[in-house]
Design a protein around this nucleic acid. Structure first.
Lengths: 179, 179
DNA sequence: TCGCTTAAAGCAAACATTTAGCTTTTAGGA
DNA sequence: TCCTAAAAGCTAAATGTTTGCTTTAAGCGA
């Protein structure tokens, strides 16, 4: 039986908040389960039983943080909408904090569901942009094409080649998928 | 002073071998530093001092395993060389073992150098294929383009969307970058 | 070849984290 | 309101990690 409300929910929220606070205060590397538990007013064994280990907990928190906060802005044309969104996406994801969250999300993710959620967030944003273009009567590529040719190269470089990532690169990718 | 030879080299090799053996025997999840050290005939503190923690050690071993063993095969044309290499690459990387090594390589990699090495391995292979095409007098895209449009989508899907990866997808990516 | 120097490994004890058995609390339903 | 069982608390044992000091041996120069 799943019990999403009541005490379980309070514990979950309190532990997540403790992780966020401690990351901000003392950095992610110094984090330990007993430390998080103490700050959350919870026993370590509760954390171990619910999350397994620190990585899975961090992965949970990371996915929450990677959720987009607002729909992509409307600039009046697909070309500009996609360019602006891509630029913003690259900016957020390639920041030190963004990289750390991406790594955390991938790390403590035995079944790939957290990573899948991250990808779904990006895909949703892309689909909003594309649907808007279609509503305007513009020709638009498929969301798959944008994921493969815009999102994937950015994420690949963030993870494997931490260099040469700037706004110009983002705009070039956006322009090329529309060509 | 770096001491690549002698005892240090023996310890490194013996520890790496212990990791490979134990992964094969008991699985990666059951691995611990004391276990690896015991198998390698070494004290745990040696492992902790040289590698820091289990993740960095696994990352080291993973990068070794991700090194290509042979140059790409020559099939007589760029289209077929690239399609065949892409298919093989996807096949190796998307296998359960491949995924595990990719994750490990990314995980215990504070400065991104191991991930960079993985990317360099793929880039080298791609460059061999492209150079061969140029030598034949064929028109060839840049290695960057192949990384962005073939390698990146594959790695993105492996990490973020573990579905819909098959030989046909590999061949489609290879064909599209040449179009 | 023979010492010298010092990076790296060994050892062992202190320390921290993780696991596991059992008890207590409490959300959700009858 | 009472029952049931999922989830949290508590504690102690097991396990893993860190650290100071000692010992070994690789690389270097005489």
């Amino acid at each position: 039986m799943v019990r999403p409300g009541g005490r379980s929910a309070r514990v979950q929220e309190s532990v997540h908040a403790a992780v966020r606070d401690l990351i901000a205060e003392t950095g992610r590397d110094a984090l330990t389960v007993p430390q998080v538990a103490a700050r959350a007013g919870v026993t370590p064994s509760t954390v171990y039983r619910r999350w397994g280990d620190l990585q899975e907990l961090l992965s949970d928190v990371a996915v929450e943080r990677l959720r987009p906060e607002a729909p992509p802005e409307d600039h009046g044309s697909l070309a500009e909408d996609l360019a602006a969104w891509t630029e913003l996406f690259l900016d957020e994801m390639s920041s030190p904090a963004g990289r750390a969250y991406i790594r955390d999300a991938l790390l403590g993710d035995p079944d790939g569901s957290n990573a899948g959620q991250c990808s779904a967030y990006a895909a949703d944003q892309v689909e909003v942009v594309l649907a808007r273009a279609v509503a305007r009567g513009e020709a638009a590529p498929s969301a798959e094409a944008v994921m493969d040719r815009v999102v994937a190269p950015i994420m690949y470089r963030i993870l494997f080649r931490p260099d040469g990532l700037d706004a110009a690169y983002a705009r070039r990718l956006a322009a090329e998928v529309l060509a």
